Simulated assay, not measured.
Amino acid sequence: MHYVTSKSLLSAKNGMNLYRGCTHGCIYCDSRSDIYNMGHSFEDIEVKENALELLKKELIKRPKSMIGTGSMTDPYVPLEKNLEYVRKSLELIYRYGFGFTCITKSDLILRDLDLLKKINEKSKVVVQMTITTADDGLCRILEPNVCPTSRRVEVLKRFDEADIPTVVWLSPILPHINDDEENISRILDYCIETNVYGIICFGMGMTLRQGNREYFYERLDESFPGLKDEYIRRYGDSYSISSPNNDKLMRIFQKRTEENGILNNHNEIFDYLHDFPQDSVQSTLM
Score class of each variant (00 low, 15 high):
Pro75Arg: 00
Ser242His: 09
Val168Tyr: 06
Ala12Phe: 10
Val4Gln: 10
Glu46Trp: 06
Gly70Gln: 01
Tyr272Leu: 09
Arg233Cys: 12
Ala12Leu: 14
Cys139Lys: 01
Cys102His: 15
Phe100Lys: 14
Glu268Asp: 13
Thr194Arg: 07
Ser33Leu: 12
Lys56Ile: 00
Tyr85Glu: 07
Glu58Val: 00
Met72Thr: 05
Leu9Glu: 01
Leu174Lys: 04
His40Thr: 14
Ile45Lys: 00
Tyr85Ala: 06
Lys118Asp: 11
Met16Leu: 13
Asn145Trp: 06
Phe202Ser: 14
Asp44Tyr: 12
Glu193Cys: 11
Leu10Arg: 01
Phe253Leu: 03
Gln278Phe: 08
Leu9Asn: 04
Lys48Asn: 05
Ala134Thr: 02
Gln254Arg: 15
Glu84Val: 11
Glu258Tyr: 12
Glu46Asp: 11
Phe100Asn: 11
Ile131Asp: 05
Ile177Phe: 01
Gly236Leu: 09
Asn120Trp: 10
Tyr272Trp: 12
Tyr94Gly: 08
Ile35Trp: 14
Tyr272Val: 03
Leu10Tyr: 02
Val155Ser: 02
Tyr96Lys: 12
Ser283Pro: 04
Thr132Gln: 01
Gln278Ser: 12
Thr257Val: 04
Arg251Gly: 03
Glu268Pro: 04
Lys48Gln: 07
Asp34Arg: 15
Lys88Val: 10
Arg186Phe: 08
Met129Gln: 02
Asn17Trp: 06
Phe276Met: 02
Gly68Ala: 03
Leu52Pro: 04
Leu90Asn: 05
Glu230Pro: 01
Asn183Pro: 04
Leu55Ala: 00
Asp189Val: 08
Lys48Ser: 03
Asn82Trp: 15
Pro175Met: 00
Ile103Arg: 13
Ser171Pro: 03
Arg151Met: 06
